[in-house]
Amino acid sequence: MKINFSLNGKGTELDVDPMSLALDVIRGLSLTGTKEGCGVGVCGACTIMVNGAPVSSCICLVGTLVDKDVWTIEGLAEKMPELIDSFVENEGMQCGICTPGQIVAAASIDSAGVSTSEEIRKYMAGNLCRCTGYQTIVSAVEDHLAVN
């Protein structure tokens, strides 16, 4: 089936099985910044942005992306370099496997109307990190949103 959507700001047409997972389709396009972690929508490593909201690409059927505005870490890194800088400056990563998902989730925060530190923690709770202890990630997001 032909599927049209916007990927990282560019109109894209793919001929794919609509029941394939967005994660597999995106990685198949050499956009390998999106990682597979748990595979069941819990860990957040595969987070992509769809119409401004964070989505687990490992449980997202690609057919549901028809006409949507989809962003991956590759596109967001170009679009929002200051967010990447904030993660670097706050050392909001260690091994790196969760980092693309953390950044895509953070990039989606504005649209959710999150503004306080507590709200940031709640919003980011769905992105698991087994290294940092989270404080540096939260600091990176707080700096980015200028929330203290």
């Binding site: 929508g41 909201a53 964070p54 989730a105 769905g126």
Partner: peptide, 9 residues
């Protein structure tokens, strides 16, 4: 429910 990603979909 779940997390922000699940709630969005």
């Amino acid at each position: 429910i779940g997390n922000a990603r699940v709630r969005a979909m």
